[in-house]
Design a protein around this nucleic acid. Structure first.
Lengths: 195, 195
DNA sequence: TTTGAAAAATTAACATTGTTCAGTATATTT
DNA sequence: AAATATACTGAACAATGTTAATTTTTCAAA
């Protein structure tokens, strides 16, 4: 990386960090080109020298957040008993993270991010995200003979769909009303799907 | 209903119908106060004489659409064999309807519709919608001894969450890529959850 | 060190969005 | 017919994303 690339990278990061701060802080509704630029310490027009448009900028945030979420999940689950208990714990940690940062959930699943080919990659990251978090442990279960390979795929699909559905209803439609009921509901679903 | 109320009702319907046409036709992204008013044949400002704001107007559409969807599902399932096959068919018809009108799916689950108490009712309608469609047939299954009551609740939760999740990923994140794969995926999930 | 051209940053502007308000036209009542 | 109430509308506002023109900064060559 030459001098110019380093500087450009740095500038990009100023905007990316500002965006991430707003999303985790005030939430996605507070996000605007102007609010980002202000937090980054530049004019809103400067942003367009480094990103094609605001969707492009947000794409970088998706990558960063998925990495952060992955780290959170790993840190919360590394000492968990392997196999089914660990899969459950991974999913629960993932849910915790999303509830903690509703803006990230919006970004991942709710916000419309693409019509053209560029952003398909953002969709790809997001769609396979839960599966990826569980991948290693699922392989472990298959190796242990807990699941057959075909069965594992079906279980994972069911977990993925259910969790995204239940999160959407909780975050976007306030159902269930309380966080406690929500957690109970998540646990029950997981028990039903896996056991 | 006196003269005045009849007229007010009629005016409301002009705007509601215009909104519904745009949502089912051009989709939710084409929806604006001005596009609605133009289609209704009035100024955009007139809209505010009949609706508190655009969210209020949209609430009426949610009610109408859920009624239309209900009728669609009934018409597609009335001759189906009762019990589990009928439940599956109801859910599949519901999914068909949503895929046909992505704007309605957006409206039901994706669009942010409320912070205050008024719109909680819109959320309520939407959250319990799939459950309600299956309610009668689920009771039939319980009466037949196919499910225990507690089990039925868990199954319904799993269906609801999974279907909303799978629809969200298909509509918002183009996963699976093809409609065929999507249908296969829906069928597999249903089989897994119910059988 | 000065100069001049390339790069970067900013201001101004545009087209949309939802919403409000002051005014005008229409309908109703006296 | 005049007075009053109702219905409707266009202008205006604030906020949105984006683009173009313009100013400021950078930095190598003279």
């Amino acid at each position: 990386m030459n001098r110019k690339e380093i500087q450009e990278e740095r500038m990009k990061n100023y905007f990316i960090d500002a965006t991430k701060e707003i999303i985790t802080g005030e939430g996605i509704k507070a996000l605007s080109v102007r609010s980002i630029a202000e937090k980054a310490g530049y004019s809103f027009a400067t942003l367009y020298n480094y990103f094609k448009d605001v969707k492009d900028l947000i794409f970088y945030c998706v990558q960063d957040f998925s990495q952060e979420c992955r780290e959170y999940v790993v840190s919360r689950t590394e000492n968990e008993e392997r196999g089914i208990p660990k899969i459950k714990k991974i999913v629960k940690s993932y849910v915790e993270y999303m509830v903690q940062y509703p803006g990230i959930f919006d970004l991942f699943y709710v916000e419309k991010i693409a019509t053209d080919g560029t952003s398909l990659s953002a969709s790809d990251i997001v769609v396979k995200f839960i599966d990826e978090l569980c991948e290693e442990e699922l392989q472990y279960c298959i190796a242990q003979g807990t699941f057959r390979p075909g069965e594992a795929i079906e279980i994972m699909s069911n977990i993925r769909n259910s969790i995204i559905g239940i999160l959407l209803l909780y975050m976007n439609r306030q159902h269930p009303k309380s966080y406690y009921d929500f957690v109970v509901s998540v646990n029950r679903q997981l028990d039903r799907i896996i056991d």
